[in-house]
Simulated scan of single mutants.
Amino acid sequence: MSFLDTLQRHMDTFNQLQSFEAAVNNLADQVEHCIKQGGKVLFMGNGGSAADSQHLAAEFVVRYKKERPTMAAIALTTDTSILTAHSNDYSFDSVFSRQIEALARPGDIVIGLSTSGNSPNVIDGIEQAKKVGCITYAWTGENGGKLLNVADETFRMPSSETARIQEAHMLIGHWLCEEMDERFS
């Protein structure tokens, strides 16, 4: 497969993201309100989505491009003691829901990244977040998987290819960080 073939698949996916404009603007409004009310954004995912969760939480807490006040965000993928203790004592399927039970408060925003939309621990995390009273988002691939019927809002990236889905997740995540820079600086 040539580089140009991969680039074309990337462009095909990104060209379809224009339809997300209203939804991502709504997400930005909800994040702004959440942060201004003293809430936080919690990110979760597995594998590459775990890394993306950590990346986005860091951009919120530190800064993206502009100097601005810090914004509360947590990646539920970073504490190896919690991840391994919980998975050993209970189940990997509930590793995020347990943390949400401990850390989330009503009005917080929980974003679960899952390219398939079928990650049991992300599904359980979203379900627990809803019980707590959080606003929930799932960022998935094109079919949405089981998360489509669980999260308050699902951003289904227009691709079934993991790499293209993750690239689209990060575009939305980086735009959100850029928008928060503007709103809070």
Score class of each variant (00 low, 15 high):
Ser159Thr: 10
Gly133Pro: 11
Gln18Glu: 13
Gly117Gln: 04
Gly45Leu: 06
Asp12Ala: 15
His174Gly: 01
Ser160Arg: 11
Lys36Gly: 04
Gly133Leu: 05
Arg156Phe: 03
Ser91Leu: 07
Ala75Gly: 13
Leu27Glu: 09
Glu182Trp: 10
Ile165Phe: 01
Ile82Tyr: 09
Phe60Cys: 13
Arg105Glu: 15
Gln18Leu: 13
Phe184Thr: 01
Gly47Tyr: 11
Ile172Thr: 08
Met157Asn: 02
Lys130Gln: 15
Phe92Asp: 05
Gly39Ala: 08
Ile126Met: 07
Glu101Ser: 12
Ala22Glu: 11
Gln37Thr: 15
Gly141Met: 07
Val150Ala: 12
Glu178Lys: 07
Val110Ala: 05
His55Tyr: 04
Asn118Ala: 03
Ile74Asp: 07
Lys66Phe: 10
Asn88Tyr: 06
Gly39Ser: 09
Ser87Ala: 14
Ile111Ala: 00
Ala73Thr: 07
Gln128Arg: 15
Thr77Asp: 01
Ile109Met: 06
Val24Gly: 04
Ala151Gln: 07
Cys134Phe: 12
Gly125Asn: 07
Gln8Ala: 15
Ser81Tyr: 08
Gln166Ile: 10
Leu103Met: 13
Ala28Tyr: 03
Val24Arg: 04
Val41Ser: 02
Lys131Thr: 07
Phe20Glu: 08
Val132Asn: 01
Tyr90Gly: 02
Pro158Tyr: 06
Val110Gly: 01
Val24Ser: 10
Ala75Lys: 02
Asp181Ser: 06
Asn143Ile: 06
Asp12Tyr: 03
Phe155Glu: 00
Glu161Met: 10
Pro158Arg: 03
Cys177Leu: 05
Asp93Thr: 05
Ser185Asp: 15
Asp108Ala: 07
Leu4His: 10
Thr80Glu: 06
Val31Gln: 12
Gly125Phe: 00
Phe3Lys: 13
Tyr137Gln: 02
Val132Thr: 09
Gly107Lys: 02
Ile100Met: 02
Lys65Ala: 12
Ile111Met: 04
Val41His: 00
Asn143Val: 08
Ser116Phe: 03
Asp93Ala: 14
Thr84Pro: 09
Glu101Arg: 10
Gln8Lys: 15
Pro69Met: 03
Asn143Leu: 10
Ser49Gly: 11
Ala104Lys: 00
Asn121Phe: 01
Gly117Met: 05
Thr136Gln: 02
Ser114Asp: 08
Glu179Cys: 11
Ser2Met: 08
Gln128Pro: 00
Thr78Ser: 13
Val61Gln: 08
Ser185Glu: 14
Asp29Thr: 13
Phe3Val: 15
Ile109Thr: 04
Val61Met: 14
Val150Arg: 12
His169Ile: 09
Ile35Gly: 02
Gly107Arg: 02
Thr13Ile: 10
Asp108Cys: 09
Val31Trp: 10
Cys134Met: 12
Gln16Ser: 13
Ala22Phe: 03
Asn25Asp: 14
Gly48Lys: 06
Thr78Ile: 08
Asn26Glu: 14
Glu178Tyr: 11
Ala58Lys: 07
Glu127Val: 12
Ile135Glu: 05
Asn46Gln: 08
Asn88Ser: 14
Thr115Tyr: 04
Ala85Met: 12
Ala104Tyr: 01
Thr13Tyr: 04
Glu178Leu: 10
Gly144Thr: 11
Ala22Gln: 12
Glu21Pro: 01
Met1Phe: 09
Ile135Gln: 11
